[in-house]
Simulated scan of single mutants.
Amino acid sequence: MATLTATELHNVQSKPKLGFATFGRTALFALAPLAAFGGVNLAAESLGLMPLFFSPLGLPGWVGAGFHLALIFSIGISMGLVAHKGRRGAIALRWSAALVAAMIAFPFFAAPLDSMTLALVMTGVLLLALATAIRMTRISGMAGWFMLPVIGWIGFGAALGLAVAAAWAPPFALINAQQPAIGAN
């Protein structure tokens, strides 16, 4: 018959607590960016500002808002997975906090921007997302997988924005412009 020492018994009993604590921390980090978005949205709405979400292919704006919230949730899960990893985790949390701040702020100032500026801002957010994902993936492979949809969606938006901006920028702008032919008066 096998017997357990007091140390072994303590190690066996502490394992489920560690798993529950990790789950709780991850859930807290996943919901915190959504709560921050809700608070910013409430404050902005009281000032009369409404967010504009990226919804390609003729999709309604609420679909883009749903994707946006899902991406913020995905970043939050990644944050929870790297939160307890020491100094490297703290650095990754700072990068991910900056990405969450950019993702929360972007829909509120996107409307007045022209297509070129909007594409450049979106590309900047994409570069921030890539840098954050690299830092998170070095710490936790699972966190990197949760960052993959963020990079995909932001990358698609940045590529689409740059394509539209390039189509209306010189030298193509002269071809696309509606100008009367010479001597057609």
Rank of each mutant, 00 (worst) to 15 (best):
T5E: 10
R25M: 11
L93M: 10
Q13N: 09
T3Y: 13
T7Y: 09
P107W: 05
L99F: 03
A6T: 10
R94F: 08
L93G: 03
F67V: 14
A65V: 01
L118H: 14
A181N: 02
A166Q: 12
F73Y: 13
L69C: 06
L130C: 12
G161I: 04
A169S: 15
L127M: 10
A181K: 09
A90H: 06
A70C: 08
A143V: 02
P56D: 04
G161A: 12
A44T: 02
A166L: 09
F20G: 03
A165I: 05
A111R: 13
P16I: 06
M122G: 01
M50C: 00
A35C: 05
R135N: 05
I91L: 07
G24R: 15
A92T: 08
L128C: 07
F109N: 08
F109P: 03
A32R: 01
L174S: 12
V150I: 08
P112E: 10
I91N: 05
S14Q: 14
F156R: 14
R87P: 00
P180Y: 09
I139Y: 00
S140L: 03
I151H: 01
I75K: 04
A129I: 14
A110T: 02
A102G: 08
F146N: 08
T26S: 06
F37P: 00
L81H: 08
H10A: 15
A36Y: 03
